[in-house]
Nucleic acid binder design. Structure first.
Lengths: 190, 190
DNA sequence: ATCGAGTATGTATAGAGATACATAGTGACG
DNA sequence: CGTCACTATGTATCTCTATACATACTCGAT
């Protein structure tokens, strides 16, 4: 949560800046947005987000204003500073070093030969269905975006272009995953 | 590395069992195999693998025999026990809870509107090329597998089927990633 | 003859991430 | 009137993952 060296922030920090760059929000709203089903490309629980926001504030990347909130503590609304915007802007065009790929389902496919054939087929069929459902959700999101924003989705200077870009990735990834699961299930049930 | 509860092993343990189920190996060979370029679907450094093997041995899932090795310590060759095989077999057909998706490139696409257009286009073009190269490597591996094993690749009771299955996933994933990167670069360079 | 790379196994430490604990106000529902 | 869910922010703790440290033999190259 705190930085290792000058200019070195964990990816979560940039994820928060990327959301805040679209407009100020509270920590709670950020946490909601970054939770499991919603966070399309980066997720974090609130226990990671609150300390990270505090660290960003200590370094002048965000500012907060507190009104009194419903709970025992004040509700804080965060906004990006110019320094934060510059940090984000620089980070966006740097190439990340490749992340480790870790997929438990692929690992199971690698060991599928040790298991009962029918049970294994059922696993991949179930995975296929789960990803088909997820795909349908994303397609619904795409329709909504398309209806609401139309041609602006193709303009890379519009914030909504970012939503569209990430959604396109999600759609492609889910379609490919469904395809592979279906292939696996077919292989195992012949 | 040690288990949280009875019957609860980290995924790395199953990854090791999955490799050992194909034949006994040394910890070093396992570590080589699980290192970055080779481990298609699960990676770990040796500092994780050695303690995990020790934990599996304490619980009777693997056995080791030590010959004297080149270094200051004996070289250990590990083999799965029946208990280990049963553990793996049961695990293979259980459905994993969905892992968090974390992709720094997609996160950058979400914030691409804040950056310089040409620099952003260059980033996605570079990513496209990197994944095209990775794809070419996987295609080479597929050719080699196909030439060496032929029809056995379609037999789910053969260990090599697992290699083929994981490789198919890799091929599909890389192709889809290349496609999306190319689309992103096109969008940004018009 | 020395240097570096590869073989081989381990420990130490720090950071990232997940889960659980803690607190308290409001509004809905039975 | 009590319980549940939601808003809202934070801390504590544990596990997983990555990086660095440690040791020592062999073999090929300079």
């Amino acid at each position: 949560m705190s930085r290792a060296r000058e200019g070195e922030w964990p990816t979560l920090a940039y994820a928060l800046l990327a959301v805040l760059a679209r407009g100020e929000t509270t920590g709670y709203q950020l946490a909601r947005f970054m939770e499991k089903p919603v966070g399309l490309f980066w997720q974090a629980p609130h226990s990671q987000i609150y300390p990270q926001l505090a660290a960003l504030e200590r370094d002048g990347m965000v500012t907060s204003s507190a009104e009194r909130g419903p709970g025992p503590r004040a509700r804080k609304t965060y906004a990006v500073t110019d320094a934060g915007r510059a940090l984000l802007r620089d980070w966006v065009t740097t190439r990340p070093e490749p992340r480790a790929v870790r997929d438990e389902v692929v690992l199971r496919s690698y060991a599928a030969w040790t298991a009962d054939r029918a049970e294994a087929a059922a696993l991949f069929r179930a995975e296929q269905e789960a990803h088909e459902q997820r795909l349908a959700e994303l397609e619904q999101m795409a329709e909504n975006l398309s209806a609401k924003h139309g041609a602006r989705l193709s303009d890379p200077s519009e914030p909504i272009f970012g939503n569209w870009a990430a959604l396109q990735r999600g759609l492609g990834a889910e379609r490919e995953y469904v395809r592979w699961c279906a292939w696996m299930a077919d292989q195992l049930s012949r």
